[in-house]
Amino acid sequence: MPEHIKGSLAMLLACVVWGFSSIYYKAIDHVAPLEVLSHRSLWSLAFLLGILAVQGRLPTLWPILRDHRKMLWITAASLLISINWFLFIYAVQSGRAVESSLGYFIFPLFAVLLGAFVLGERLGPLKWAAVALAAMAVMGLTYALEAPPWISLVLSSTFAVYGLIKKQLDAGPVVSVTLEVLILLPLGVIWLWGAHTQGWQAIGTQTPGVFGKNWQDSLLLIFSGVLTAVPLLLLSYASKRVSLATLGLLTYVNPTLQFLVAVFLFGEIMTPAHLIAFPVIWIALALYSVVSFSEERSSRKALRNAATVSTT
């Protein structure tokens, strides 16, 4: 099987896992979001350290840990991804999974804006049109619902800024995420101590300190480590074998599955405003994807032509 096919299948599988992960978080909606987040940090760290140990890559952590500048950026990334994870868990558990899927649909276009204004990347008129369409959809949704879709906007913005920071780091996804959850670990341990010994509850009426009370919940919480780490390993594998445009297109599988699960499995209601906003955003994403593929093909063609000229 060609390498690019293997990479595409790996990325597709990662997006399927992410897309269906809302089913997992719905299954543990009796566990408070902060408690779930704490367990996710704890068990994903254990799983990722195990992966790095098997690969013989644990020593790669030490140079980064000693680099204060890199650790500052990783700390910022850790804060952003923890907000993102918490909001996603909260959205699923509170019956707002449609809103979370909207956030991940908006994310690529939010990332485009960051690239333009922060990195100075130039956007053509069609990409600007895609961004404008998405912005119109969000503004229309805000007007119709008389409130901005804040979960969607925070999910998309934190993930986009997180991606921007990761782009500046000279570290692979598994190594960097291991360090991110390592930074989160003390906060998670403190919260779990409070939940189990002091009955801490951040929001809602969930029972605190669930872990250890029955084997089903305990295993599900441990599984959060696998659910976090496996898609990252697949992403790492895929990113070395397929183009960025292909990766970008396949990421739309994730919010599409989230949307379908929210509507058809969780039974969340789609308002008329959502029925208008979502198709507009899908059109914007389609336009953006077509332009990205066209630009990548042109770039590859130019490189081939340059290589041909240099050898003659």
Rank of each mutant, 00 (worst) to 15 (best):
T178F: 03
S41G: 14
K167N: 08
I151E: 09
L109D: 01
N84F: 13
L52A: 02
W215T: 15
L232K: 01
L109E: 01
A307S: 14
P149K: 13
W150M: 10
V138S: 09
L123M: 11
F259P: 05
K127N: 07
L65Y: 09
S157H: 00
Y25V: 11
L219K: 00
K6R: 15
W150E: 02
L234P: 06
I23L: 10
P231N: 08
F107N: 05
A97Y: 09
L169F: 11
V242N: 02
G199N: 05
Y162R: 01
S310Y: 09
L247E: 05
L65R: 04
V112M: 10
Q55A: 14
I81W: 02
L233E: 01
G7D: 04
G95Q: 15
V177Y: 04
L185K: 06
V253F: 08
L179V: 03
G204L: 02
V17L: 04
L221F: 14
A307Y: 15
T311S: 12
G188M: 01
L250Q: 12
D217P: 02
L260Y: 00
G204P: 13
P279D: 02
L61P: 06
V131K: 09
Y237F: 11
S310T: 03
A111V: 14
E3C: 14
V181F: 08
N84T: 00
W128Q: 01
S236P: 08
A284H: 00
V189E: 03
V177C: 01
S224K: 05
V263S: 01
C15Q: 04
G209V: 07
I64L: 09
F110N: 11
A286S: 03
Q55L: 15
E295Q: 15
